[in-house]
Each structure stands twice: as C-alpha cells, then as structure tokens.
Design a protein around this nucleic acid. Structure first.
Lengths: 196, 196
DNA sequence: ACGTTAAATGGTCAATTGACCCCAGCCACT
DNA sequence: AGTGGCTGGGGTCAATTGACCATTTAACGT
C-alpha cells in the first residue's frame, strides 16, 4: 500500500525513498469491510484518507432522506470532509466502503508535522487540491449546462471501471438524477434514441 | 490595491512588509471598463488575477448559447481558468467585468518565481485553493440536493451585496435556473408562498 | 430630454423528470 | 435450499421548469 502512495506522490513531486521513510510512521492503516463507515455525518473528520485498495464513496443525505454523492474514491485517491478535517467542525458527509478496502490514514497534527518536516509535501498537497478544484469546477459547470445524458457519457468515459464496480443507482445520485431517469436514459442510449 | 492584497495574504499567513515588497514587482496592474473581457474562451489564461476594485464574472457558453456562471469575483478575490493557467491549454471560460475594475495580475512564471523566493506563499495559495475547493464542493452538493429556492436564499445570504451589484438574470445563471424561474420564485418568496 | 438597450416580470404551454409502484434476477446469509 | 435484501428495468401520472413570448421598468448614451 505504501508503494502506491509513493508512486502517486512521485508522479507530482520529487521525493527520495529516504524522505518517504520519514512519512510512513505518521500513517495508520485500516481495513474496512464493504458497507462499513469510516466517517459519519456529525462526527469530526479526524483523518485524511488514502485508498490503497478498494473503493469508498463520500455522500450527504438530504432532508427527505435522499443520498447525494460527492465523490467515489478509487485506489490511489484521497478523501475526507476537508472542511471538518481543518476546522474540527462536524462533518457534512458520510464516507462508506463500497468494497472491502485498505486505507492509509493521517491525522491533522501528523499531517502538519509532515509538512514541516518535508516542505515538498506542501507542494504535493497543493497540486492535489488544485487538480481536485479544477475537476470539481468542471463538474459543477457541467451540472449547470449539460443534459443528464451528456453527464452520464462523460462519467462513463472518465471512469470506465465504475460500470462494474459502482451500482447504477449510485451513479444516478452522483449525477444528480433519480435511478429511474438513469435507467430510461441508458435504455435510450442502447436503442439509439439518444441525442447527446 | 496592494494594500488589499497584503491584507488578504496576512489574514492567512505571516508575511513581513519587506517580504511583500519582493512580491510587488511581479504583478502588473490593469484597469477594465464594464463589459470588457480579460479572458476569452479559446485563449490561454496567462494570468492569475486579483480583484483590487470592481467585480468580474467567469462563465462558459453552452452549445445553445446559454451562459453558465462559475464565479463572481468581488474585491479581494482571485480568478483565472486554473487548468488553462497551469497547462497553457485553451480556456473553457470567459472572464468579463461587471463593473469598472482594477486588477493585479501575475503570470505563471512570475508566480512560480514568487513561490521559490517566498515558500510561505505556497502555503497561502494552498489555503486559498483549499477553501475554494471546500466552497465548490459545498456548492456542487447543494446543486444536487437543494431546491432552487434554497439555493437562491443561500446565495443572497452569503453575498448580500450581489443583489445591488449583479443583475438577476446572472444570479439565475449562477444558480443553474432560467431568469423566468428566478423571477417566479422571487415573486413566491415576496408573497409568502414559499416553502424553503 | 429622448431614444435605445438592458433588465425584470409574468402568462401560456409542453416536455422532462421525480415519485410511486411493480416485477424479475442475482447475491449473501442462514 | 430457502429467504430476504439488493439491483436494475420500466410503466403511469403529475408537477416543475424551460422556452417562448409580451409588457413594463430602469439604465445608459447622445
């Protein structure tokens, strides 16, 4: 699992293996069973979480009980309720395993000590967050301007493995449509009646 | 204008006035008339832009000619097409002045040299981008889960001055609804027929 | 002051989508 | 093997909203 983390970090910054060895003791490891929660709404998000194996989703529940998915975190991805992680305010999000998963987790004090020890890591997280901001902005502007079908096709193209690994009704709630609407638009696509 | 920039930076990090003096020569200044563009879709976003005075909007145009606003940048705010700024790829966004505006602008090479000269600035931008990511995530999950009315009331509460400074039809396109729908829901709110 | 443009309001109509519901197949657990 | 839960598909119906349109009001430029 640390191999994947090292690989992901060195895709973006220069970090020696010796420097990386300094990082390792700051992480705890955790295994999650499918459907197990690592964070629940109302609790504080005490960890920044790296997915070594498996798949997590981060979602809110609205006043009518509907679920709205902010993120699927595949292998190599980070996830947390960032606001809660940095402010110790109660989390808005639940984070749940969609598959048996293995995680690396770092608390905020450890994370800050890491940034002090290795300033290059500050740069790594800035790049990470920056890329996440760009992607989130793109998704937001897409949700304002695209048809549900365009959104679905884009999602499937960006994350082809999600078709096998993520239930359709969760894809629907990531896209902001009901599962019935997604079923209908998949039928239209399959029958050639689509106009994307 | 540099006073406002210094104030904004020192809200987040420690920076001496001597250190700030090192920053100033890296910025160019620009005045914009109302309706003037500082970036057009298809061009490269060569500057990261700080709004000293005035108001900008960042928006895309969809295939039917509809406008979708990603951001209003009030005084003290930064704006750019971040993806384009960092990759030199053509911008997806237009950035236009809603009022006569005064801007501080920094190119990417200057910005990188600034980060090398003053590593604390890397931290400032990470915090800035992090807060922007948190806000964008909140807005995205809101656009999936909230009624248009909830979105409008939240917007007005967060940015009360926008009522005087931003046309209603632009607020509509920031919220992802038509100007007709916004007009109707404002009527319902004013007449007490609303159910937020 | 006047003419033009921009902005806001609001009516009508149709289409899309959510909500509700049912069914069939698959999977996990006992 | 049996049962319950999960997942996906799809029908029906009603409501919300977009699109189109017209009118009024406000702002801007000469």
């Amino acid at each position: 699992m640390f191999d994947l983390l090292y690989k992901k970090i060195t895709e973006k910054i220069t970090l020696t293996e010796d420097e990386f060895e300094l990082c390792k003791p700051l992480f705890s490891q955790r295994k999650l069973r499918k459907r197990q929660f690592i964070l629940q709404e109302g609790d504080v998000s005490r960890y920044n979480i790296f997915v070594g194996k498996g798949l997590l989703r981060s979602y809110t529940i609205d006043e009518k009980g509907g679920e709205h998915i902010l993120q699927f975190a595949f292998e190599g991805w980070w996830t947390a309720d960032l606001y809660s992680f940095f402010t110790d305010e109660p989390s808005l999000f639940n984070i749940e395993a969609l598959e048996d998963s293995e995680l690396l987790m770092i608390t905020r004090p450890s994370w800050e000590s890491l940034l002090n020890k290795l300033p290059a890591i500050e740069r790594y997280f800035r790049i990470l967050i920056q890329n996440s901001l760009i992607a989130t902005q793109r998704r937001l502007i897409g949700s304002l301007s695209e048809t549900a079908e365009q959104k679905y096709l884009k999602f499937v193209k960006a994350y082809p493995e999600s078709i096998q690994r993520v239930p359709q009704h969760m894809i629907a709630s990531y896209l902001g449509i009901t599962r019935e609407t997604l079923s209908r638009l998949r039928r239209d696509i399959a029958s050639g009646k689509s106009f994307p």
